[in-house]
Amino acid sequence: MRCEYCGTNNTAQEKFCSACGSPLREMKQVSEQVGNPGGALSGIQCPHCGKLHPSTIWNCPETGGDLSGNTDIQMAGRSSSLSAKLILEDGNEIPLNTDGQTIGRDDFDRIVSAQDLPFISRRHLLISFEDDTYHIEDPGSKNGTSINGLEISGNGKYELKDGDQIVLGKVIKLEYRSK
């Protein structure tokens, strides 16, 4: 397991980093869902906005509310909303949901290398679900987004089609799969 503080790779049995002594934590929910096709979302339910947030953050990204006092809960995800996803080159997946979501640096934390992370903006992509299709929008990220080689940053919504090749900040390659 990779230490989120110093980046040292530790064996799966370790609970504390052998180099810096920090407690090791499971990767974020997005990667935990790989190999869990039944689609269970986990996280902390925000008392302010009701959404589930990864248990790795303290504040609700929507409302800024405090999450630290809330315990982790498991909630069954809707299979229809979990089938669509963005796949990274290494096989890690980011599931898309029909409620609309923001994809940004936090979603890639500890999935991509620390060198690549700064190229992803905090709110890099907005995902929306309209007329039974996913739409993607780059509201103006610093390093841009291209789909099949076409730059979309600041150019409004783009309808995703199965197999679309998405590149974030010129470094992170993703593929859209509708199921």
């Binding site: 989120e4 503080y5 407690p23 934590r25 248990s55 790795t56 953050i57 303290w58 630290s68």
Partner: peptide
């Protein structure tokens, strides 16, 4: 900056007063 951000996310540290 990396370390500060990691610390803000570290649930173990959330109980320490003033840390956040």
């Amino acid at each position: 900056s990396q370390q500060a951000e990691t610390m803000v996310r570290d649930p173990g540290l959330s109980k320490i007063p003033e840390m956040k």
